[in-house]
Design a protein around this nucleic acid. Sequence first.
DNA 1: TCTGGGGTCCTAGGACCC
DNA 2: TCTGGGGTCCTAGGACCC
Length: 421
Amino acid sequence: MTYALVDCNSFYASCERVFRPDLKDRPIVVLSNNDGCVVALSKEAKKVGIKMCEPWFKIKDSFTRQGGVAFSSNYELYADISARVMQTLEYSAPRIEIYSIDEAFLDLSGVSSCTELEQFGRECQEKVKCWTGMPVRVGIGPTKTLAKAASYGAKKYLATGGVVDLSKKERQRKLMSIMPIEEIWGVGSRLKQHLNKMGITTALELADTDTKLIRRRFSIVLERTVMELRGYPCIGLEEHPSTKKEIVVSRTFGKKVTTLESINEAVSDYAARAAEKLRRENQYCRVVSVFARTNPFRLQDQQYSNILSCKLNLPTNDTRDILQVTKMLSRKVYKSGYNFIKAGVMLSDFYDKGVYQSDFFIPDSRRPKSEKLMKTIDKINATSENRVTFAAQGVRKPWSMHRHFQSPKYTTNWDELLVVS
DNA sequence: TCTGGGGTCCTAGGACCC
DNA sequence: TCTGGGGTCCTAGGACCC
């Protein structure tokens, strides 16, 4: 097998630059919802000492003083640029797996016999840059884990020009010998701690550890990682996204919330969005959960957190059914006297249409014409700015998040197109 | 004053069944 | 005096990913 991992450089920050060439070489950060903390940063921002996940309020002053520019997240823009990048990659390889918003695995098994792989990587880079404006790097290897490692090398060492080919055993071992284990795909901070205690600190040391020992001390997951590092593919390409097993919609509030009415409104709003996502998956859910919690950073506040679930008689994807349940649950989750900062809705236990065992003794509670109504609502909401919503979702939404530095939706909204004068 | 959101997989242990 | 064996399902918790 030969895999390539194509990875966008500082994806969100680069998206902001696509339509703002004046920001070339400026430090850029992109902030999470509510402009809370840094979720993406350009290499110039890294250079002035900004770290991932830092709270914006702590770095705001010094960052702007150093010429930095901050953006609130603009998911419409990022999703659209991502789609363009993925489409470009589909022209480059016969089979691709879209792994996340900014990464894709390519199957290069056929390519390797007719083109030099490193050359392929550079051409791919150029094509994506030319067609979409997005800078990417390319890591190539016989397994997905090694392709990921190659991509790490391409990021870390500038001399590579953003393309690393690990087809050859010697190159694999050379890179792994200077690669810390926590940079390996599948090794996080906990495993790093455990492995360090066993004296394993580099990727190469892990690759050379006995797999039986790894299986016994850890799990089959890490055993697979070891095999992949040795060049034996254990993780295949997944071309078609499998149906989801759960759907979560949750948000931190723009300001603290204390009343049941506000919690209810927010939870109803999230429920409607979750139901919409569920229908997009063509699924029906049987379990609905609601959670809410206070702000753990406010040490002066009394803390509280709770989650409650309800199993329905029949699977549904009708927003009205889900709203009914979430309202009941949020009443139970809510407690007066607390400052709530976040709430959410979770849907799980999914079924395909018509696939479930109904109960002889429970009357059929399905609503007539549900499917047609939901389809119509989804259609209107997909094409119009004036969304159809349920009264429970609220109108003014004082609890909703704020985003002060959002860029225009250059590619997805007629009113926000780039104007050249 | 201000600290994100959305997912997956694996394992161990308990309940329960025959 | 002596108290089995094999299996499934569910849940909570832990770990990881972007």
